[in-house]
């Protein structure tokens, strides 16, 4: 097959993948997955009224509420994206095999990579749409609350006779806790993390014999991924000595290749605290997410292409 004929086949691949992705999205929507959004709305409203005993002065009360809204919202987004990515991906493939719907799909001129990519993209489309809706809700509530806090704190500062420069700093600080570009970066990071874990679950489901196994192992790898960097540092870092360094480096590389370093996504917590997420960090996370997505997808294909039904 020459290059021209390969290029000519690309639109057909995209077309079929899009059909399967759209179908997977519809399937999940009809499983009433979006009910979670109502749960999210409740969390969002609750976070507005949740107050812990404060040790700081009254001037920090407003920003504390804003942080709480962000913290609760992003935690709900993480929970939803993680659960959907793992459970839906683990479930869809074995279900198609069990119901023999896979036979009817693969008996059509559908390459197995198109089927896998379609399933994965369908799950990610659902996660993306859900996160986008949650993001809009979060930004809306946060914007409203920021305006209230800004008003209250400015009035308080004026009442206390703060100098104009200090009030400007205070306003900037409050706005920094509101809906910022960094906050959008954090939502994107939540999505990227979901994409990585979904593609990992897809890989596991190509050789796993049960949905339960895939789900449990995916969650385990997710948690292990938070200690991956520390473990590599501890066991394969400088402590092994220089004589074994190349072996250690290779091993370290292999571990990093198979097991994603989810600690890199901890940047989300810093955004909650009002820190700025530099664009290069988001770029790095995007590349990393894309790398693992493609790596796991092709590894899944490698196994699935040889699978017999």
């Amino acid at each position: 097959m020459n290059l021209i004929s390969i290029i000519q086949l690309i639109p057909a691949h995209f077309g079929r993948t899009a059909v399967i992705a759209h179908h997977t999205f519809t399937q999940l929507v009809r499983m009433k997955v979006f009910y979670f959004l109502a749960f999210f709305a409740v969390i969002l409203i609750a976070s507005n009224f949740f107050n812990l005993p404060q040790h700081e002065g009254p001037e920090s009360v407003g920003t504390h509420v804003l942080s709480k809204i962000k913290e609760w919202s992003l935690a709900a987004m993480t929970l939803f994206s993680l659960v959907i990515s793992i459970v839906a991906t683990s479930l869809l493939l074995p279900k198609d095999v069990e119901d023999r719907t896979l036979y009817t799909i693969l008996a059509k001129p559908v390459p197995r990579i198109d089927y896998l990519a379609g399933k994965l993209l369908g799950v990610l489309l659902l996660v993306f749409v859900s996160l986008a809706i949650m993001d809009v809700l979060m930004v809306g509530v946060l914007q409203l609350r920021t305006n209230i806090v800004l008003e209250e704190q400015t009035a308080l500062a004026l009442k206390r006779g703060w100098p104009a420069q200090d009030i400007v700093v205070l306003k900037a600080e409050i706005l920094g806790h509101g809906p910022t570009y960094s906050l959008q970066g954090a939502v994107i990071a939540v999505f990227l993390r979901a994409a990585v874990i979904a593609s990992l679950a897809l890989l596991l489901s190509t050789f796993s014999t049960s949905t339960l196994f895939t789900t449990i192992v995916s969650f385990l790898i997710f948690f292990m991924g938070h200690f991956q960097a520390d473990a590599r540092e501890m066991y394969l870092g400088g402590e092994m000595g220089t004589s074994n360094s190349w072996i250690a480096q290779m091993l370290s590389l292999l571990v990093a290749l198979i097991l994603p370093d989810f600690q890199l996504f901890n940047i989300i917590d810093e955004v909650i605290q009002g820190r700025i997420m530099p664009l290069w960090v988001l770029g790095k996370l995007t590349l990393l997410g894309l790398f693992y997505f493609i790596f796991y997808l092709f590894a899944s294909w490698f196994i699935f292409a040889e699978k017999e039904f």
Binding site: Q27, R100, T101, T104, A107
Partner: peptide, 9 residues
């Protein structure tokens, strides 16, 4: 192709 006892979506 129609498989034996098919279950569609």
């Amino acid at each position: 192709f129609l498989p034996e006892n098919p279950y569609f979506y």
